[in-house]
Design a binder for these strands. Structure first.
Length: 490
RNA sequence: CGGGGUGUGGCGCAGCCUGGUAGCGCACACGCUUGGGGUGCGUGUGGUCGCCGGUUCAAAUCCGGCCACCCCGACCA
C-alpha cells in the first residue's frame, strides 16, 4: 500500500499548496518548458517553452511596431567605460556584470562587458544619429539576450542569461517622452491581460525600486498562485540622465541646441514564469490558447483493430477540420499508451482542449471535449463531429477569458486594504501572508525600509489613478497623498 | 559571502555506523497484454559510487584535503 502510494507520487508533481517553489520547478521540467544547463543559472528553452516565447514575441512585436518603433540590433559586447558614464547606472549594474577580458588569445586593452541592458551602447549611437528635431522622435526596439550575474537564480524568473525585448526612444520634449513611457506601459498592460490572461495592477515605482538611471519607473505587476507579486514588465522615463553624459543633442526649430528626452521599456522571458505561476495547477501547466503551441489534442480511444480503423479515421477527420479552421491541433496516436496516460500527459503540458474520440462517439457522430481550465464533470462536454471546429473555436475563446477571470478573482481575493501597520504586519507574517496590501504610505523611504525589513513586503507600485482622497501613512501617521501597493515579491 | 543540506546508471533513492568487488523504483529497449483517467507481466541495456590522496590483503563504506550543486538570506527583470 505504501509502495503503491509512493509509486503514485512519482507520477504527480509536488502539490502546489505543499511547496510552491518545488511545484513550480516540477512544472517547468515536467511540462518540458525548460531544462537546467551545465552553466550555473542558465537554462535551456525546450521547444514547448520556446514556442510560448515565440508566440509572445510575434504578438508583442506587432503591437510595438504599431506604436511607431522599429526593430534594430545592437552588439552583445559593450566597452566597459560606457557603463561608467551614468553614475546610477554603473552603481546599479556593477555587481552583476559579466566581463570579457580576453579575445583571440590576448588580453584586451579595454574589457568588454556582456550587455546587462543596452542603454549605453544605443545612446552612444543615438548621439551620432540625432542632429535635428527632424530626426525625432527616434524609436527603436530590439529582441535580444542579456546577461546579469545574479546571485540566486530561478527558472525563467531570474536566470543569468535571459531573452527580452528592449525599446529605446528619444524625444524632443519632456512631455512627449513621458507620454511615450505611459503609452508603452499601457501596451504591456493590454498585452499581458488579453494575451496571457494575467490580471495586473499598474503604477509607478518607489525611488528604491526604480531602474538605475531612470527618473521614473513604471511597472505592471501580477499576482502569482502563492500570493507573491511578480513584475511583468517595466517602462522607464529616463529624463536627460543619459542624454547629457552621452551628449545626445539636437537643434530645435529655433536653432537652439537641446538635449533629448528619453524612455526605455522591456518585457522578458520572465513572462513564461508568470504564465506558469498564475495559471498552473496540481495537474500541470494551463496555457492560455493564444500562447499554446498545441491548442487542441485529439486522443483516439479503441480496443480492437476493427474499432481502431473507424476511430482513427474519425480522429483524423476531426484533426483535419480543426487544422482547416486555423486551430493548432494534433493527434496523439501513440501506440501502447492508455488513454488515461495521455490525458494526464497533455494536461501536464497545459493543452487547453482535449478531444476524446472512441467507438461510442463514432457511433453517435460525437466527440467528448475536455477543457483544461476546469476540472471534474464540468470540464467535459459533447460536440458533434460535423461541427467540431466551431465548438473548439468557441471553447478556446472561453478558456482564454476564463483563465483571466479565475486569476482576477484570485487577485481580488488576495488584495486587502490596511490602515493599521500592526495589522498589516501580522497579516504579512502570518500563514499565507501574501497578496497585495493596499495602504496609505507617505512616500518616505524610511517607512518603506521599515516595512520591507520587518515584513519582507516591498512597494510594488503606486497606482496611477488614485481615489483622490489623502490619508495618513500606515507606518508613521504623517499625511500620505496617495495609496501604494505592497507585497512580497519575486 | 553567511547559515543548512546533498553528491551512488538518465531521474529518485538504499547500501556507509559494523570494509569483502553495487542494489531497488522510475525511465529506456524488445515481446506479449491492456486501452473512456497515469494497464499488467516477462526479458534486457545502462554505474571508474563527485575529485585527489591516505590507511588496509581488500574502500561506495574508515581518515585527510579539494570541488560541485541545491535550499534559506543579502542583490535583481
Amino acid at each position: 500500500m505504501a509502495e503503491k502510494q509512493a509509486k503514485q507520487n512519482e507520477k504527480k508533481v509536488t502539490p502546489r499548496s505543499e511547496d510552491f517553489a518545488a511545484w513550480y520547478n516540477d512544472i517547468c521540467i515536467r511540462a518540458e518548458l525548460a531544462d537546467y544547463s551545465p552553466v550555473r543559472g542558465c537554462i535551456v528553452f525546450r521547444p514547448d517553452g520556446f514556442a510560448i516565447w515565440e508566440a509572445i514575441r510575434d504578438e508583442l512585436d506587432k503591437r510595438i511596431k504599431k506604436t511607431g518603433a522599429r526593430n534594430a540590433y545592437f552588439p552583445l559586447f559593450i566597452p566597459q567605460s560606457f557603463l561608467q558614464r551614468e553614475a546610477q547606472h554603473v552603481e546599479g549594474f556593477a555587481p552583476e556584470l559579466a566581463v570579457v577580458t580576453h579575445g583571440g588569445g590576448k588580453e584586451l586593452e579595454e574589457p568588454l562587458i556582456v550587455r546587462p541592458t543596452s542603454e549605453t551602447i544605443i545612446n552612444h549611437m543615438f548621439a551620432q544619429w540625432i542632429r535635428s528635431h527632424r530626426d525625432l522622435p527616434m524609436m527603436l526596439n530590439q529582441w535580444c539576450n542579456v546577461v546579469r550575474w545574479e546571485m540566486r537564480t530561478r527558472m525563467f524568473l531570474r536566470t543569468t542569461e535571459f531573452l527580452w525585448q528592449e525599446g529605446h526612444t528619444a524625444h524632443a520634449t519632456r512631455e512627449e517622452a513621458e507620454r511615450e513611457t505611459l503609452t508603452m506601459l499601457e501596451v504591456y498592460r493590454q498585452f499581458v491581460e488579453e494575451f496571457l490572461s494575467i490580471p495586473l495592477i499598474v503604477g509607478r515605482k518607489s525611488a528604491a525600486e526604480r531602474f538605475p538611471g531612470a527618473v521614473e519607473t513604471y511597472s505592471i505587476e501580477g499576482l502569482m498562485g502563492d500570493g507573491r507579486a511578480l513584475q511583468c514588465g517595466t517602462s522607464h522615463f529616463l529624463g536627460q540622465n543619459f542624454a547629457k553624459p552621452f551628449e545626445i543633442r539636437y537643434l530645435d526649430d529655433q536653432n537652439q541646441m537641446q538635449f533629448v528626452w528619453q524612455t526605455s521599456w522591456g518585457v522578458s522571458t520572465r513572462l513564461l514564469g508568470a504564465i506558469v505561476m498564475a495559471h498552473g495547477d496540481d495537474q500541470g501547466l494551463r496555457l492560455p490558447p493564444t500562447v499554446a503551441s498545441t491548442q487542441a489534442v485529439v486522443v483516439p480511444i479503441f480496443r480492437k483493430p476493427e474499432e481502431g480503423e473507424k476511430v482513427l479515421a474519425a480522429a483524423r477527420g476531426a484533426l483535419e477540420s480543426l487544422t482547416q479552421a486555423g486551430i493548432r491541433a494534433r493527434i496523439d496516436d501513440r501506440e501502447g499508451l492508455t488513454p488515461g496516460f495521455k490525458f494526464n500527459d497533455w494536461e501536464m503540458r497545459g493543452v487547453p482542449v482535449r478531444i476524446e474520440i472512441g467507438p461510442r462517439d463514432v457511433a453517435s457522430g460525437e466527440a467528448v471535449l475536455a477543457r483544461r481550465d476546469k476540472s471534474g464533470p464540468e470540464s467535459k462536454s459533447k460536440a458533434s463531429l460535423a461541427t467540431i471546429a466551431d465548438a473548439v473555436g468557441v471553447l478556446l475563446g472561453e478558456i482564454q477569458k476564463n483563465l483571466y477571470a479565475q486569476a482576477k478573482a484570485a487577485m481580488i481575493a488576495n488584495t486587502r486594504k490596511f490602515d493599521d501597520y500592526a495589522q498589516f504586519r501580522r497579516h504579512m507574517e502570518g500563514e499565507g501572508g501574501g497578496g497585495f496590501a493596499d495602504v496609505y504610505w507617505c512616500g518616505n523611504p524610511v517607512c518603506e525600509t521599515r516595512i520591507s525589513e520587518e515584513t519582507k513586503a516591498t512597494c510594488r507600485v503606486i497606482p496611477l489613478t488614485s481615489d483622490g482622497a489623502a490619508g495618513k501613512c500606515m507606518v508613521c501617521g504623517e499625511s500620505a497623498p496617495e495609496r501604494a501597493y505592497f507585497a512580497k515579491a519575486y
